[in-house]
Design a protein around this nucleic acid. Structure first.
Lengths: 228, 228
DNA sequence: CGATTGCTTGACCCCCATCAATCCTCGTGG
DNA sequence: CCACGAGGATTGATGGGGGTCAAGCAATCG
């Protein structure tokens, strides 16, 4: 079993604030898991007894709306912590987490994290900052959802995905999302997303390489993002 | 100048976790302000050097979208803290806060709060919990914005407003919002909001007493909230 | 009592949700 | 190796929700 002290991923999140001793303690009680593409890590209403530290892979965090469609709210990747919110509120999960590709994650039990939150102010400040940033991001998402058209949101999301997940050798946005997933990010029907993608393609803002999206004209997409 | 130790409002937020000594220190450096209806407390991009503790009154917290409309994201009332997020991230404000009616607020300078956040784990845990709850609420707002129709969101908002701000002697929802404000909460054009209100009125789900909204049929609104 | 701000209604039309049909692609088992 | 089935991608047709512009009315305020 790998040791947290030697794991580079911890540098990417609040765990970097833990002392050597605290890290060793965590290392002894954590468990590593492999999660297959499509697998559900936790569901709305589940009691998650800890947090997940993502070593590799990507997962989508979503919530089922009453009308039956799943809205994707976050995309979580290497270095992120998953499940912090529920842990701190001491509530069941409000959201569902599903692996977008194969993942390696470490599960750290709740009591350990809580102990450190109480005893290590640097750690708790770091978690607090992290949460504050999420809150800001989410506030901004609300504004976009409420005020922007589907076309604007799609342009915006494409740029976001490329920026955060990079591109592969073909230049394609390097995240394995279906059209339906993309539709669930921007909050629209799958067909609308597809139609807009084909419009963007026709105008040479993007091209499609085997369903993968290659962004050709960032500037044009940026201008769509702010208007029409 | 009032003393925090004697102020009942502190029981309503994280400040209740402070020790007597800490409270006295805060009490000496805080400043009380009266804010008039319509006045802007801070604007997007302002550097807020502390947090506001709301003694009375209500303010709307909003963000201007690139298309020029203001989206209201939170409504803050007695007992709430305003400006926590920016303080913790150590960034300029992402949002704008405007008084909906006359307010009394206390301003607590940043350094004092930060000092307590580092030294008092109960306080920082309380702030953390508070932030976690906001995050959950905001996640849910995203889902509603993305997936629900304007009619659903209006029904939902009316119920929310009544529940959180109560009713006055006429039975009217006890918060002084214009139609435009309501439209900016649900993220739609003012005219659409008005049209839906008049539809609800026609169906006797609500009545209007001098522009104030009196809710007559909660069950019907609840069923609208989940479907159509 | 003007004048500004908020409220209301009408007309118009476009964006996008929905339903339906077809095509594509990839994994599985025979 | 191929057939086949299932899930994903795509395109078309259609209708309604809601945005926008415009005009008139009500109310609030200096």
């Amino acid at each position: 079993m790998g040791k947290c002290e030697q794991c580079m991923v911890r540098q990417l999140n609040s765990i970097k604030e833990l002392s050597k001793d605290e890290l060793i303690r965590i290392s002894h009680c954590k468990t590593m898991k492999i999660i297959k593409k499509g697998e559900v890590i936790f569901n709305e209403g589940d009691y998650i007894n800890g947090v997940f530290c993502i070593k590799s892979g990507i997962c989508k965090v979503s919530k089922m709306s009453e009308n039956g469609r799943d809205q994707i709210i976050h995309l979580i990747k290497r270095g992120d912590l998953l499940g912090q919110r529920s842990l701190i509120s001491d509530e069941v999960a409000n959201l569902k987490a599903t692996a977008v590709n194969d993942m390696e994650v470490c599960f750290i039990p709740k009591q350990e994290i809580l102990k450190d939150l109480h005893k290590n102010p640097n750690f708790s400040m770091s978690v607090l900052k992290n949460m504050a940033n999420s809150l800001k991001d989410t506030d901004n998402i609300v504004v976009n959802m409420a005020q922007k058209s589907v076309r604007q949101r799609l342009a915006s999301s494409l740029l976001y995905l490329e920026e955060n997940f990079g591109v592969n050798k073909d230049g394609g946005v390097n995240i394995n999302l279906t059209r339906e997933d993309i539709a669930n990010i921007i909050g629209t029907a799958t067909e609308s997303t597809i139609r807009l993608l084909s419009e963007f393609k026709k105008k040479d803002y993007i091209k499609l390489v085997k369903k993968e999206i290659v962004i050709l004209n960032r500037n044009e997409l940026k201008s769509i993002e702010v208007f029409t």
